[in-house]
Design a protein around this nucleic acid. Structure first.
Lengths: 144, 144
DNA sequence: CTGTATCCTTAGGGATACTG
DNA sequence: CAGTATCCCTAAGGATACAG
């Protein structure tokens, strides 16, 4: 399993982004973290795509090392770990939403809630702001 | 080398997009096709990332099968083939630009021309329109 | 519950030679 | 020029068991 970012192939910004998300799993984990607002290891494990526990662990580690998410113990349940997106992770939301829009346009079987798709098309920036504020809220709520 | 799209893992739109661009090379080829406006096999081969000819051929085939680009013979030079993005391919431009924006923000070494980065930040839609119109122009120009 | 540790398979990819 | 055809190898990924 991959534990480090591969060496950069060029100084192109697209290539740079691919060094992080150019595989089958990283964006799935980020989707669950940011859009689905999952917080616990078990939640990610339950995704429809059936990610294996070792793959999930390696991706969480990679994303943490890349500064895309942070980990901390749940203050209430000491055995649980809470994953939260960082600013750098949240900043990938626009890219993800454009991919959602693209898929919704070309794949009829794609199962994004129509309301979400409409929001992304008409009111993307407000949706991004909402996700960001929810993330900030969750962080302060569980911290105190 | 991969010749067909892998079976879909779920009906999630992000997962669907990853079925196409969830690897290290496909988006690089699309970048060259759409943003760099490359048209010939040799142009793609010359990219900084040093793609191998068999990988390139498999990606071009895959993208054609997916309806993201079209191939045709150059009417002037019968031995040459011209690749052009389709509507479906061009529609990935917004996603690519968001990735460029993200990389430009977090990677100081990223080599997007500053003017391009600024345009994407301030005037993304106009840039997209420009690329689209250039693509359409090229198509009609070489067809007649 | 949150991960590690193994084992194993396969597919993705690099190098290179070659063809119409 | 525009690809194919091979060979080879590694890393990515799946399954499963188990540990703190």
């Amino acid at each position: 399993m991959r534990q480090t970012t591969p060496p950069r192939r060029s100084d192109c910004p697209i290539s740079y982004a691919l060094d992080f998300v150019g595989d089958k799993w990283t964006l799935i984990v980020l989707r669950d973290l940011i859009i689905m607002r999952k917080q616990h290891f078990r939640d990610f494990l339950g995704a429809d795509e059936k990610i294996a526990s070792n793959i999930l662990a390696s991706r969480l580690k990679l994303l943490e090392a890349a500064g895309m998410l942070s980990r901390r113990r749940d203050p209430a349940h000491a055995r649980q770990v809470i994953y939260e997106p960082t600013e750098k992770g949240l900043d990938l939301l626009p890219s993800m939403l454009e991919l959602v829009r693209w898929s919704a346009k070309y794949d009829s079987r794609t199962a994004a809630p129509p309301a979400l798709v409409r929001r992304i098309a008409e009111d993307r920036d407000a949706y991004i702001a909402e996700i960001r504020s929810l993330a900030k809220e969750a962080k302060t709520a569980t911290r105190k």
